[in-house]
Amino acid sequence: MSFEVDVSITRGSRRIAAGFATGPGITALFGRSGAGKTSVLDMIAGLARPDEGRIAVGGRVLFDAEAGIDLRPEVRGCGYVFQDYRLFPHMSVEGNLRYGWRMAAPDARWIAFEQVVEFLGLGGLLTARPRRLSGGEAQRVAIGRALLSGARFLLMDEPLSSLDADRREEIMRVIERIRDELALPILYVSHDRREVERLAGQIVEMD
């Protein structure tokens, strides 16, 4: 099992609940906007605390309300690729890429800086500031930063939504390569049916 999730959280007057267990590869979390998909990612990353339930990834329990387990975000080993990239504006691309890498325990670093730069084609961008990047470039940096932090799994929140058609294709290929070559479990949030059908081996519908 990759992701085992059974949680609920109250957001305002709404209750968001999700329960699923996934196999390896990419699992799509699919549903209309506002269905609470991002809230589910936030709970897995430890950025939001579920009211109740349990979260485990790759057999490691990250949250269990009954057992009183609630790992801090920084030890969950999650590579969160945000919809809005969230690159650090006061650091260069290289500074962003190395940010998580510096803090990861040496034995948690499963991929080298040079490998990531090569894999994502970031060679020419290392000294650039994030605000000078195009959407596709920023998304590749965000993915690289997540990989280098020693992530054991990836959470991707609509990574293609703010890109034009060419860039979507480019990032889609990157994601397929991560799936096929790096074999990381990925939870992929989208509201685009075609995107989901192309990338994901498994689909969880939320409404």
């Binding site: 430890g46 801090r72 975000p73 920084e74 803090m103 997540a146 932090s149 020693g150």
Partner: peptide, 25 residues
């Protein structure tokens, strides 16, 4: 604050987030 949350997921403790993200910004 979303940048601070991103830094947490990358492995930074709250103190580290303060020193490397909040304070410089």
């Amino acid at each position: 604050r979303r940048l601070e949350a991103a830094a947490r997921t990358l492995g930074a403790s709250p103190m580290r987030v303060f020193v490397t993200i909040t304070l410089p910004l």
